[in-house]
Computed example of a mutant assay.
Amino acid sequence: MKKIILGITVLALMGSCRSGQKGDLPGARELAETLDPLREQAVKHRKIPRTIDEAGQVKWTGERYDWTEGFWPGVCWILFDQTGDEKWKEEAVASQEQFVAHKDLTTDHDLGFIFNCSYGKAYQITKEDRYKEVMLDAASSLVTRFNEKTGCIQSWDVGDNWQGKRGWEFPVIIDNLMNLELLFEASELTGDPRYADIAVKHANTTMKNHFREDASSYHVVDYDPLTGKIRSRETAQGYADESAWARGQAWALYGYTMCYRYTRDKAYLEMAERISGFIISHPNYPDDGVPYWDFDAPDIPEAPRDASAAAIMASAWIELSEYSEGDYLQRAHTVLETLSSDRFRNRRGEGYFLLRHSVGSIPHGNEIDVPLVYADYYYLEALERMKKISGE
């Protein structure tokens, strides 16, 4: 019965999109046309785009490790898969080869973001073993950061950096849930359970320690690496330690929905449902579905919106609609309609990226109210998922 209701809902939603009404969702070729100038710049400079600078020009990732570097090739793989245009595949391959050596780094946790969104997409689409091998190397590097005492993968190394100045010893951020998909994939591809076992331990520890009674998430939990005891619960990118940073809530929603996909553990499904309930019932969550950068920002309704958090939520809700009763698909569609409107989406010639109005880190004064490559990635992923769930 659920599948029948879901099918009717999807057909109704997609029908409204095709009817030419306000809020139509764009197709892949239209989006590819919008991003083609950015692709041309990336080819010309042989660099990976991240955002724009104050002059409105493309800001590139550096030659050093950058947690966002995998999203641009991921965007290109999605557009290649949706359009069949080889130039997107060529750019995907060329851009991800620039950071392939980072698969062996053991100094940060974002290998899942980087390699699952790039080489993972490549393998998913092409089934070429060369991409799988890079994924597995990255997964092997990532698990070196797991600590049995804490039951977690360490997020940031601490030393002579801003993380060290916070006094942390073993910080774990809610974002880290997103890196677990690489580990689940590694176990499925190899038959070796150790990757998934570590992913499950991390997910379980995070579920126990990162969430408040209302299912909102702290950003950072710092552990004692020798005893596993919690030292503090804080924020790095949110408004305050006890506030609900919007993108953090999005990572949590997406992360536990993804964990349920791989494990079918109902505890993860229930966690995703609870997180969703917090988001949609919050009095500061706008009707149009695009959250303020923090649910507790003091200057709401003047506070910046975060299109990146909205895109992540939309993609997660589409998947969650396949597992759970509720209006998750309608929620996702509302978000996508808003993001596809003139307020949030660029057309060709209006800007290099697809979406405007994302927020990187207000406490760091970094990337505020600008396009961000990962917002585009999850927006495209959500649109792709919506298309697939409709059977088109």
Rank of each mutant, 00 (worst) to 15 (best):
S340W: 03
A332Q: 12
F184A: 12
K121F: 02
F146G: 00
W293Y: 12
I362F: 01
P26E: 03
P73F: 14
D85F: 06
G391N: 05
Y262K: 11
V158Q: 03
P171E: 04
P193T: 01
E188I: 00
R194L: 00
K266N: 08
R348A: 06
I153F: 02
I48C: 01
S243V: 02
G255I: 09
D108N: 15
D294M: 04
Y292T: 05
E234S: 07
K201D: 14
A240W: 11
L177V: 15
K47Y: 14
G255L: 12
P225C: 13
A240P: 04
T227D: 09
T235V: 06
L180G: 09
Q41N: 05
I125T: 10
D137R: 04
D214Y: 11
D299N: 14
S118Y: 05
D294I: 05
C152N: 08
H109I: 00
A32W: 06
P37V: 15
G349Y: 12
T206N: 07
F170A: 02
V134R: 02
A250M: 04
E242C: 07
V221I: 15
E181S: 08
S16E: 13
I389L: 15
R233V: 08
I389Y: 12
F184T: 05
D224H: 08
D369I: 13
D175G: 04
G84D: 04
P363V: 04
I198D: 11
Y262S: 14
I52Y: 06
Y285I: 12
G74W: 11
Q82M: 07
T263W: 15
S340T: 11
R264H: 07
S308P: 01
I198Q: 09
Q57S: 08
Y195D: 07
P363A: 01
K127A: 09
D327C: 14
N116I: 09
A307N: 09
P283C: 13
G7T: 14
R347W: 07
Q124S: 07
G7C: 14
I78G: 11
W317C: 02
H109T: 01
H102C: 08
L355Y: 13
G20K: 02
N179I: 03
G23K: 12
L142H: 01
R343C: 02
K59P: 02
L13T: 05
I174F: 10
L372F: 13
A240K: 04
G27I: 07
K388R: 15
K2H: 10
C152E: 11
M207F: 07
V43Y: 11
Y323H: 15
A252F: 06
Q82L: 13
I279P: 05
H202G: 04
Y262R: 12
L182A: 03
L329Q: 13
E325L: 10
V100L: 05
G349K: 06
S358A: 15
H364T: 07
V221D: 00
V143D: 00
D294E: 02
E133M: 15
K121C: 10
I368V: 12
D24E: 15
A314N: 08
L31M: 05
C17S: 12
I280N: 03
T338I: 01
C152H: 04
I300E: 14
V290N: 12
